[in-house]
Amino acid sequence: MEMYGENYEKLKIELQDTEWKCDYIDHDRNIARAIVYDDKEQFYFVRAERDDDFGKATLIETAGGGVEENEDLLSAIKRELKEELGVKVEVICKIGVVSDYYNLIHRHNINNYFLCRIKSFGDRNLTEDEINSFHLSTLKLSYEKAVKEYEYRANTRLGKLVANRELPILHQAKEIIDAYNL
């Protein structure tokens, strides 16, 4: 793994859930997520259409998910990107960690973010839940359109939590890409 972005201080962001009351937090979830881009500087995200305890919402999110037992972060991010976007990637660097909370489900999220460039495309391998409950699809957007989409989708309580978590990471990724002509 080439480590671009070493001159950048890795982001470490601590966020609170200001949308739902915190009764208690009873579990942590270690998550690997990525800002994914191609050689034309198009960025790839997942769109989720939810109608659950969090409410009805259409979201933009980075691809990624839970790190499995005995799995390292790099293996997890490569697996998640293959499953959700159908891509094989080069991991450029770690961008940072965002600690946030989903008070509604009593969970603390430890989001490990990476910057990844697409090497090849293939088939996605979504879970039944990702297909039927979240209706996951792929979004391919320019940086400017991605920022606008996050801002637009912050119109729901969950959308606001996701945008607060991911917009600083997206901005940092763009700075690294531009600084190193990636």
Rank of each mutant, 00 (worst) to 15 (best):
A179F: 10
G66T: 10
K82P: 00
K140R: 09
N181V: 03
T156K: 13
F121S: 02
K82N: 08
D38K: 05
F54I: 02
R153F: 01
E149V: 12
Y102V: 00
D100G: 15
R153H: 09
I60V: 13
R33I: 06
N111R: 13
I95F: 01
A179R: 14
G64W: 07
E2A: 08
K148T: 13
R157M: 08
E130W: 12
E83K: 10
R50L: 12
V91F: 08
E90T: 05
S133C: 04
E41I: 02
V162F: 05
E9F: 04
I25T: 13
E149G: 06
L81D: 01
L182Q: 11
Y37E: 13
L170M: 10
E149A: 15
L139V: 09
I25D: 08
D38L: 03
A32N: 07
I110E: 11
D100P: 08
Y102G: 03
E41G: 00
G86S: 06
L85E: 02
V46R: 01
L15W: 02
Y8K: 11
K174V: 04
L141S: 12
K82T: 03
E2R: 14
L11I: 12
N181F: 12
R47I: 11
D51F: 14
E68L: 15
H135E: 10
I60Y: 02
K12A: 00
M1D: 13
D123V: 03
N164W: 01
M1T: 13
E6T: 08
K174C: 03
R47Q: 06
K145N: 09
I25Q: 14
E61V: 11
S75E: 15
Y150D: 12
G55S: 05
L115T: 04
I25V: 14
P168V: 05
E71L: 07
I77N: 08
W20A: 03
K145C: 00
I77C: 06
Q172K: 15
N111C: 06
Y8W: 07
L115Y: 01
R165H: 06
I177L: 11
A48G: 12
K160C: 04
D38I: 04
I77A: 11
Y24G: 04
Q172T: 14
Y24M: 09
E80T: 09
D100R: 12
E19L: 08
H171G: 03
I92K: 14
I25P: 05
F54Y: 07
E128S: 14
V147W: 09
Y102H: 00
E90H: 12
Y180D: 10
D39R: 08
N125L: 06
N30A: 01
N30D: 11
A57F: 08
I95W: 01
D17E: 12
Q16I: 02
S137Y: 02
I177C: 07
E144D: 13
E14M: 01
F114M: 01
L85R: 00
K78R: 14
F54E: 10
I31A: 03
F121I: 04
D53T: 01
A57I: 03
E41P: 00
A154Y: 02
F54C: 02
R33W: 12
A163Y: 02
G96Y: 00
N7I: 00
A179D: 15
D17K: 04
H135F: 11
G5E: 01
K145W: 00
Y150N: 10
V162L: 05
D72S: 13
D38S: 05
A76R: 04
L139R: 12
N103R: 05
S99T: 10
Y143G: 09
K82A: 07
K174G: 08
